[in-house]
Design a protein around this nucleic acid. Structure first.
Lengths: 266, 266
DNA sequence: TCTGCGGTCTCCCGCCGGGAGAGGGTCAAG
DNA sequence: CTTGACCCTCTCCCGGCGGGAGACCGCAGA
C-alpha cells in the first residue's frame, strides 16, 4: 500500500500541472499529505482535492499566491469571506477601468474634434478649506470620495464648485500629493480639514466634457497647446469640478475645468 | 530653440513614466521625433501625444506590446479596427471566465453536498461519426462549437446525445487530443468527419448538473471516488452531453455525464 | 535479479512589462 | 564655474508559469 496519490495522479484529478503543484508546495499553499523522507516523493490524499480547487479558482481570479496563502491560513470563515470580498471589489474596479479604457479607445480612434478652447487667466490667491495627503495613484478616486465627503460635512457646498490639485509626481512616480478644497468664507479646522491659502498663479485652462475615462486626452491636448504657445508648466494640475457626480449622476453632463500653472519661456 | 520636448516633459503630458517611454522607444512602438546623436537625448513633439495615448489605452487593455506595434503599424483603419475587435473579444472571454470563477468559488466555499452518485458500467465498443484534433486548452470551447456544428451538418442529431473524449494530457500540458462524436447508423466521411470505432471500456460515471463553470469540481469528486474504490484511471475522460446548450439555453437544465475509464487495482 | 522506461526529484533559465538603482554625462540658471 | 535637476545606459528584480537538463526512483517483464 502506497502513501497516497502521486503528484501526477493528483494533478490529473485537479487539472493542475505537476509543476504548479510543486510550486504550491514550495510556497506552503498546499502541503502534500506525506513526503517520503528518503526519496522526496510527494504523496497527496483525495481530501486535498477541494483545497487545490479553491486555490485554482483564486488564481483564476488573479489573486496573488501570497494572498491565497493568507485566505487559506484563516480559519474564521467571516474573515475569509471578507478577504475574498476585497478581491472581488478590486476585480470590479479593474473591470470598470477596462470598460473605461475601451470607451476611451473607441473615442480616440474616431476622427476627432477641432480646436481646444484654452484660456490663460490669472488665478488670485484664495483661502479655502482643504484636505491634503500623499496618495497612491491607484487609490486616488477612493481617497477623493472620502475627502470630499468629509469636506462636505464641514459645510460650504454650493458657494463655488470644489476643486483639487494633483502633483505632477503622482503620475510619474505613482504617488504624490493631492489636495481637495471647497471655498468657504471662514475655513475651519476640523478632522482632516485645514484652512489653506492657495497661491496666485497664471493658469492655462480648458474644460473637459463628460466622464473622466479619457480626461488624460484633454490633458494631452491642453499640454500641447501650452507648449505650442511657448509656455512652460510650473506646478500641480488644477481641477475644478464645475459639474460633477455629486451634482448630476449622468456622466455626459459633467464639466471639469482643468488647468496647468504656467509661465512664459524666453 | 530646442529640438522638442524632453522625455520628462513628454512623460508629464502623457501620464506615462520616463522609463516606459524609453522602453517604447527601444521596442520601436514610439520613436522620439528626434534623438540628439551626440548625447542620445530623446526629444518628442506634441504631435506624438495621441499615439502615446493610444498605446496607453491598449496597454490598459493588456494588449501585449508586440500586438500594439502591429496595430500602430497598420495604416488601414479597417484592419486596425479588426485587430482591436479581436482583442475586445478576448477580453470578453476572459471576463466570462472571471465571472465563472467567481460563481464557482462562491459555490465551493459554501457548505456542500452529500454523496456523489457514481456508477461503474461497461461501455461497449461503438462506431460513431467523429471529429478529432490536438487542441490548445484555451481554444477547446471554440473548437468544440465549430466541430459540433460540422458534425450536426452531417446529420444524426437526436438519435443519442453527443459526446466527447478529452485526453488527460490536455490539462497537464495545456494541449492534447480531443474527440467529439455523434452516434449515427452509418458514419460518413465528410469534411473533418470520420467514422471512428470507440473501444469498449469500464466507465466510472456520474452526472454533472448545470453550467460547466465548476465541472472540474465534479471531476475531482469523481476522481476521489475512483481512487477510494481501488480503481485506477486508464484513458481519456468521457463526456456525454445529455442536455446541453443546444438543447436548452438555460444552464441550470444542463446535464453532462462525465466518466473515467477505469480498471481495478490489486 | 537485471533492465528499461516512465515518473519524479532539484535546479536554472526565459517570458512579459515594468520598477529600482548605479554610475556617468548634459543642460541651464545663478 | 558650480550646482542641481535631468537624461543616458546597464543591470538586477518581481510574479507565476513553462521548458529543459541531469539524476534518482518505482515497477513490470524477462
Amino acid at each position: 500500500m502506497r502513501g497516497g496519490l502521486t503528484i501526477g495522479e493528483f494533478a490529473q484529478l485537479t487539472h493542475l500541472s505537476v509543476r504548479t503543484l510543486r510550486r504550491y508546495h514550495e510556497s506552503g499553499l498546499l502541503e502534500p499529505a506525506t513526503v517520503d523522507p528518503s526519496t522526496g516523493y510527494r504523496y497527496y490524499s483525495t481530501g486535498q482535492i477541494p483545497s487545490a480547487q479553491v486555490i485554482h479558482r483564486l488564481r483564476e481570479l488573479d489573486v496573488p499566491l501570497a494572498e491565497v496563502g493568507k485566505i487559506l491560513a484563516t480559519d474564521d470563515p467571516g474573515v475569509r469571506a471578507e478577504l475574498i470580498a476585497g478581491h472581488l471589489d478590486r476585480l470590479q474596479t479593474s473591470l470598470d477601468r477596462t470598460r473605461a479604457a475601451v470607451n476611451s479607445l473607441q473615442r480616440l480612434l474616431r476622427p476627432e474634434p477641432g480646436e481646444l478652447p484654452v484660456a490663460v487667466r490669472s488665478e488670485p490667491a484664495r483661502l479655502v478649506a482643504a484636505i491634503t495627503d500623499v496618495v497612491e495613484l491607484g487609490n486616488v478616486l477612493e481617497w477623493y470620495d472620502d475627502a470630499m465627503d468629509e469636506l462636505d460635512s464641514v459645510g460650504g457646498a454650493g458657494l463655488a464648485p470644489p476643486g483639487g490639485h494633483y502633483d505632477n509626481e503622482l503620475f510619474a512616480a505613482g504617488h504624490g500629493r493631492v489636495l481637495v478644497y471647497r471655498v468657504i468664507a471662514e475655513p475651519p479646522t476640523y478632522g482632516r480639514v485645514r484652512p489653506v491659502k492657495l497661491p496666485a498663479v497664471e493658469l492655462a485652462a480648458t474644460v473637459h466634457h463628460g466622464a473622466h475615462d479619457d480626461i488624460d486626452v484633454t490633458y494631452g491636448r491642453l499640454g500641447a497647446w501650452v507648449v505650442e504657445h511657448a509656455l512652460a508648466v510650473a506646478g500641480p494640475v488644477h481641477e475644478t469640478y464645475v459639474v460633477g457626480p455629486r451634482d448630476n449622476p449622468d456622466p455626459a453632463s459633467w464639466r471639469t475645468e482643468i488647468g496647468w500653472p504656467v509661465f512664459r519661456v524666453a
